[in-house]
């Protein structure tokens, strides 16, 4: 087998390994779908961050701010529709959720543009300053969210048609988790298409490898980076909506909590690699759900163990980006 395809086996391997440990097929199916849903949401959030790092070597610890902001904007837009969302059909619910997510992505994308200009741009090439100032930016964003919407946890109820489960055999599969898997897959496929079939995608892939050469070919990598940063922030906003609905409540600190997971994912995947980010996110989602069921006390640091094991195998992550 091609060495490049080896990491792809990890996801089914982890799922199959968990089957005898979980014991019951219906419970395993429920946990696997939950893990895939969580993984897909994390992928949506982390995919922008890994490209941001890959393209400009920028460590954005403030990425979590866009997750929280996306969730709060969605909550604000959903609030007046609460009654309709509770009773609408599945198709009508999706039709109402489209403007909700678009609003969250538009706001986080716009704030991302300002974040890049004001916070990131002055610290290009200075990792320590990037870490400090982006973490500071996230703290400021959290406090602004508290000032606008209050410090308390806010429930974000699932629309009526997304509540409950589908019974497949004896396995109960939550409807929302299936939807999250579908959205995550759609984002992944759209990203693959953009990266592999468009010139902008080619430029991003080339820029992740050797940005100096991309500039020498006549392309402005900074302009490209701003575009990727805005798109990455908007995806984090979308991820925030999905995560908020997944948890069914939101807090200003939710982004900071997810931040840890997304950094684990992009390190596991190989900094700058979209395919690695996808595999890493699915592994993290599955691992969190299986260990949460099998050994709740281990669940908190199970993904750190996973990251350690993968880095011992491949020190630069599952898909190291060449020339870095």
């Amino acid at each position: 087998m091609n060495r490049a395809h080896l990491p792809l086996i990890l996801v089914p391997a982890l799922a199959l390994l968990a089957l005898p440990l979980v014991g019951s097929l219906p419970s395993w199916a429920t946990l696997t779908i939950a893990g895939l849903a969580m993984g897909m949401i994390i992928f949506v959030i982390a995919s922008g961050l890994t490209l941001i790092f890959g393209l400009m070597d920028v460590l954005n610890f403030g990425h979590g701010a866009f997750i929280s902001l996306g969730a709060y904007v969605a909550m604000a837009v959903m609030l007046p529709m609460a009654g309709s969302l509770e009773t609408a059909s599945f198709a009508a619910t999706l039709a109402m959720l489209v403007p909700v997510t678009l609003a969250a992505m538009a706001v986080t994308g716009a704030i991302g543009l300002a974040f890049e200009r004001v916070i990131i741009r002055p610290v290009y090439g200075q990792h320590l300053k990037q870490i400090l100032i982006t973490m500071g930016g996230m703290i400021v964003a959290e406090e602004l969210i508290k000032a606008i919407w209050g410090p308390q946890q806010i429930p974000l109820n699932l629309p009526g048609s997304l509540k409950g489960s589908l019974l497949v055999g004896e396995a109960a599969i939550e409807k929302y988790r299936l939807l999250a898997v579908g959205i995550g897959l759609a984002v992944f496929l759209a990203m693959l298409w953009t990266l592999n079939r468009t010139k902008i995608g080619l430029l991003i892939r080339a820029g992740v490898q050797d940005r100096e050469m991309v500039e020498s070919l006549g392309y402005r990598i900074r302009t490209l980076f701003v575009g990727v940063f805005v798109a990455g922030s908007a995806l984090a906003g979308l991820g925030g909506v999905l995560w908020g609905l997944y948890q069914q409540n939101i807090t200003a600190a939710m982004g900071a909590q997810v931040n840890v997971l997304i950094f684990i994912v992009i390190i596991i995947g190989g900094l700058g690699s979209t395919a690695g980010c996808f595999v890493g996110a699915l592994l993290v989602g599955l691992m969190a759900n299986y260990t949460g069921f099998l050994a709740p006390k281990v669940a908190l640091f199970s993904n750190i163990l996973l990251m350690t094991a993968i880095l011992l195998w491949r020190p630069q992550g599952l898909y190291p980006v060449a020339n870095r």
Binding site: L202, R205, A206, Q209, D210, E212, M213, S216, V321, A322, N323
Partner: peptide
């Protein structure tokens, strides 16, 4: 170093 994009 030729600047080839080896992943492309």
């Amino acid at each position: 170093n030729m600047g080839i994009f080896t992943d492309l």
